[in-house]
Design a protein around this nucleic acid. Structure first.
Lengths: 301, 301
DNA sequence: TAGCTGCTATAGTTATTCCCTATAGTGGCA
DNA sequence: TGCCACTATAGGGAATAACTATAGCAGCTA
């Protein structure tokens, strides 16, 4: 049984005449005749009465023709759904992003993306790098935004921007009058860190070798927002990515100080499976990043 | 797009691996690979990510695969419905029958048919010969039971039985003591006839040439039952087919007299379109007639 | 009843499609 | 670098599906 044969029986049932049905199907009369005979043979039922001017199916035959029409309709829907999917910028894009970027980049990125690809909403998964990597590999995500390095087999990356680290201290802190801090000066257990697993924690530890990293310490934040509050409360100092310190976040209760040049930074990148079927969606995301109205980032795209 | 291709993408989506999917479809891996590529090309959408160990469709691809499954299901239903129709003795048989036979033959015929083809109920259309002929031609009926002659292009007939005509008179009628009536004796306007259009009326007129047939006459019955009542009421005499005079119809108020041999009779036959797709249903009907427990009929099958 | 008409089936041929085997290409991994 | 797992490509052969031409059949008409 083929879709062509089903088309034939539907046409024949409607036309009631082999020749006209064949013409409608753009085939010769013998072609249709043979095809009908073949299908009847396969199904074991004679679907059409031959002879005279009418060939109207009855009872079971009518049902078969009706069902054939249903099958053809369903097949056509396959085509329609595929058609809808032809535009790679249509449909949800599943984006994973790390905690230390999400809240600060996404509001602007989503706004920007809406201009580039209005038909492509983002389904956001905020998580830690390791989990995002798993989800990307397992096709639970289409694309992720993480900090480099991010080496996974079969995954391509593209740098988006570099993000400097900044020192944050409470108002009235001795460093308040300094113009720049050296990474080595950030030391001791007054430095507030994110909990283990967050990549930014490791990035800070890498940038400021003097920072101690006790495994269990109340001085561990759940998120950058928590850290900021802890600093404002005078619990210590910290290092945060510049993205988290931009407008519209209020820095009234803390003092933000730059590192001495070259300031430590991290490189934020887009990553996706090399075989991802919607490359244009990647392009759209890159374009959305390009159009970000955030001068602080040193864009790389 | 072919059903085979749809089967392929469903298998591939489930197996997540070209080789295994191919094996499941009983084709070689290149065959499936090419078929998928061809379908993707036709639909204009890349449905599957290639590479690594997983090939799980996402979003639009998932929908396409789901819809493909629906289409395959519908196609399978075509096969099932056809399967149901394979047994020609399954499903309603649309039977037309003339008024002067229906009420007398059908009760027994239906009973008999139930033994021969329990899965084939009859949809009864009781009408006059001309209308039955139209309905048979237009495929509104599958088969009809009428009196011969019944010549229609493309229609085959098979005699079932011969049915003698009988004279019926009211109790106390002068003919009551006669053993047999000659057709010529049935004459005058005391003879009750069916209304015009009923074939039996014409058969009586043909058998008894002396009967007058005024076009408008109150002595016209709607049915044989009516005629019988009119005779019982003393309104006249009539000629009826023997089938209408059998058990369980009470003949207490009338006297039934035979014609002198050879008694006039009519030949009852089955008729169907020569191309009718359920020849076995015809055979079953014939067999049901054969098994009728009515010794009065001179069966011809 | 012969011939015509309208319809479907069959025969024979050609063209296409489909599927197979063999092998190349690719990326991950040890 | 070589191996492994996987998919794509090439080339040939078999099956299928198409076409044209024509036969066969039934009904209709002269």
């Amino acid at each position: 049984m083929t879709l062509t044969e089903l088309r034939y029986i539907v046409a024949l049932a409607q036309e009631g005449n082999f020749s006209r049905a064949a013409e409608r199907c753009s085939v010769s009369q013998p072609t249709l005749s043979v095809a009908i005979a073949r299908l009847e043979d396969e199904l074991g039922v004679q679907l059409f009465e031959r002879g005279k001017g009418f060939v109207s199916p009855s009872d079971v035959e009518r049902q078969v023709v009706l069902q054939a029409q249903h099958a053809l309709d369903e097949a056509e829907k396959v085509r329609q759904i595929a058609q809808r999917g032809r535009d790679q910028l249509e449909g949800v894009l599943r984006l994973g992003i790390i905690h230390t970027i999400g809240p600060y980049l996404l509001p602007q990125l989503i706004h920007s993306l809406k201009a580039v690809a209005p038909g492509m909403p983002l389904a956001i998964e905020e998580n830690m790098t390791a989990n995002l990597a798993d989800m990307l590999r397992d096709n639970d995500l289409d694309v992720v935004i993480v900090a480099l390095p991010f080496d996974l087999p079969g995954v391509l990356t593209r740098p988006l921007y570099d993000e400097s680290f900044k020192v944050v201290v409470p108002l009235g802190h001795p460093w308040e009058s300094k113009t720049a801090i050296a990474p080595e000066d950030v030391a001791g257990d007054e430095v507030l860190l994110l909990k283990a697993g967050n990549c930014f924690r490791d990035q800070v530890l890498g940038a400021c070798p003097q920072v101690s990293s006790p495994e269990t310490d109340i001085r561990l934040g759940h998120s950058i927002g928590t850290i900021r509050c802890m600093v404002a409360s005078g619990l210590g100092v910290s290092v945060l990515p510049e993205g988290a310190l931009q407008h519209p976040y209020s820095n009234d209760l803390i003092r933000v100080l730059p590192f001495v040049e070259p300031a430590p930074s991290r490189r934020i990148a887009l990553a996706w499976r090399s075989g991802f079927v919607r490359p244009k969606a990647i392009e759209a995301l890159l374009e959305a990043v390009r159009r970000l109205e955030v001068p602080a980032y040193r864009l790389l795209v």
